[in-house]
Design a protein around this nucleic acid. Sequence first.
RNA 1: GUGAGCGUAGUUCAAUGGUAGAGCACCAGAUUGUGGUUCUGGUUGUUGCGGGUUCGAGUCCCGUCGCUCACCCCA
Length: 438
Amino acid sequence: MIEPRILKGFRDSLPQQELRRKDLITCLESVFSSFGLVPIDTPVLEYTEVLLGKGGGETDKQVYTFTDHGGREVAMRFDLTVPFARYMASHAHELPLPFKRYHVDKVWRGENTQKGRYREFYQCDFDIVGIDHVSADFEILLIINESLKRLGIPAFSVHLSHRGIFNSFLADLGIADRAPDILRCVDKMQKIGLSEVEAQLQEIITIQQTRDVLAFISASGTPLEVLSALGDLCGKAQEHIHRLSILTDFAMDAGCADTLVINPSITRGLDYYTGVVYETYLDELEAIGSICSGGRYNDLASLYTKQKLPGVGASIGLDRLLAALDELSDTPSRSSTADVLVICMDESRMGDYQRIACRLREAGLHAEVSLTKRRLPQQFSYAERVGIPLALILGEEELESGTYTLRDLQSRMQERLQSIEKLVNRCRLLTGKGAHTL
RNA sequence: GUGAGCGUAGUUCAAUGGUAGAGCACCAGAUUGUGGUUCUGGUUGUUGCGGGUUCGAGUCCCGUCGCUCACCCCA
């Protein structure tokens, strides 16, 4: 016998979790579509040189690579953004610009595991490519907002910053060459706090420079107040600050400014961001970290093409978001999609059971039939355990008289219905599924 | 990848180196067309896996796999 084990950092998904994930993805996709974004797909495997580019970075060590049967050096995608850059370079001439896409799929990273951090996980990306314009930055912000609202998340905030402002500020201090280290350090602000960041910064730059940097990232208040403070600290970045202020104006006009926070300590670790950057936190679950982040990257496709393809986008951490939704909602999750369980009273009447179940299915209801005769309590318990709300009892009496006994498993009330139409209507009412629902 | 802690029944947890246990859950029956109570009976298991020390290992040692935490990085 072979032990049915699975690899570290890889997981099976039981129906209960998988249904929740699918529901979540369906909801997000409907939001994306409502903005006119279209779905795309790219291969799981790419040439190693395509994914790693010039290479040398920290991500290289985490990428699964191997030599295929034809001697090619191949790599599994570790995010959806880099393959997308390659995709745009390959197909830009076939696509309308600006191009808006979304992509939800698995990616792989061979790093060490931790709670909520796995070697195989889902990413959910949405981007607008082909224009470098504040309107695109704003639309991404709006999509983040709408997504979280539609998921029923009560309170969240989108933290916004701009790489260009910070870089210009660092250049003024004469420490632009250490920008990547400083950004990485400042990015930990949320997690390790101000004093720890200060200590780490002093190992990179002077005490005075550290004070300046801390003053910069500590600016807080309303978006307008922060922008004004940044303007004082960083005169050469007026263009970038102006862009953020237009973005803020748009957000106010669109009625989504209440979730907006300008937070200069947000930098994003990745070095390919060049403009606005986003991080999204749940007010009630800050400890879980950012559940949606992204930003503007204006040089991403330059590895693959001379054509200028500026883009802006964001990525939702589905696993984190699922964990968050689990904590926030108290509704029990189901492991069935059925609305009605047709009870088996007599195995020789299976044809009748399925015939009636099909009538329910044609009416848009999900009907599952018990395949063997078991004691009634067992069939009821099964339905309740997997989350099927209704049971349809078709015994000798009902089949002879053409009637239907419908039981509400939760209330344990049941009633006799005189026709299939009445049965359908009653099921729709009890499950909250209107006639229009499919 | 580096460092640390943990791994016993489906689950939550016990067991001075000396016969592997309890609650909950689960299954069967009392009740073959009605599940929430009660009663009776039952399975709870190669103590993650593999070696070693010992008369004897869940317990001590080594290795391995997995989980958790920190670093790193990030979703």
